[in-house]
Design a protein around this nucleic acid. Sequence first.
DNA 1: TTGATTTGGTTGTACATACAATTATTTATG
DNA 2: CATAAATAATTGTATGTACAACCAAATCAA
Lengths: 142, 142
Amino acid sequence: MKNCGLKYNTCLYYSANALARVMGKLAEEEFSKTGLAPTYAFVLMAVNSFPGIQPKELSEYLQLTPSTVTRLIDKMEIKGYLERKNCGRSTEIYPTEESLALNDQIKTSWEELHKRYSSLVGETEGKELTEKINQAIDNILK
Amino acid sequence: MKNCGLKYNTCLYYSANALARVMGKLAEEEFSKTGLAPTYAFVLMAVNSFPGIQPKELSEYLQLTPSTVTRLIDKMEIKGYLERKNCGRSTEIYPTEESLALNDQIKTSWEELHKRYSSLVGETEGKELTEKINQAIDNILK
DNA sequence: TTGATTTGGTTGTACATACAATTATTTATG
DNA sequence: CATAAATAATTGTATGTACAACCAAATCAA
């Protein structure tokens, strides 16, 4: 493609989205062994590690909005991986046996994902990039 | 949130998505003056700079799938910003006067976006981060 | 104590993006 | 040439995510 002076790849918005799409594909492939899309796998891992965690906490933890978390939990409840327990105005989320049984597989896939992108972008480069991204997020949100 | 050994923020997939969401919000705010969502503004800029560009090229340029580009063009055509011209199996996309008239405003918003995130994450940090992200994308796709 | 405000969670709705399948055109091959 | 393979674009459909509005519970204030 000819150069037109439109250097999209000098724009952090553009590049961040492009990276998210590319990484999303890798993640989908790696997590496909679990039968779950990556975000759902992350939800299960969190609930498996913190039985009784509340949606609010999950949304902070996953950096997703509360409504998104509600939808994620809905689907995992339907699939039989999670259960809600109402506690006044708040809610506690618990894993089912199926979810706990899947945890090792999920963690393995997660490790595979890490290995895979590390082999592509380099171990230390990947680590540093991730840290820099986290730092940028902090600076934007603070 | 208690530490459970689940360090999501050591995962490039997770952090890349989080950054994309955060940057997406900034971009939406800045481009709101143009009345367009960021991606649509990018499409118009590309077509304004390359009248006659083909969807295929756009999809490579924007790093989006062809079907997504078709949908983007659909909407911009309906809004009166773009026009399709069929050329055999390929298609050429042209800007309307409205699109050209909006170009300066779009570019201004784009610059504002750059200034804004630069002020938050730091000028050089932002630039370096963007470069590192591009490099990672290249390494993953190659 | 009761009325107002805040807070956790959900719902209706909208939208960006993608995949798989399909159509239409072009190129290659036997 | 005629048929097969490749390519550009589109369409049907699904999904992840968010915003705004809303409900219900809890806290605060008069």
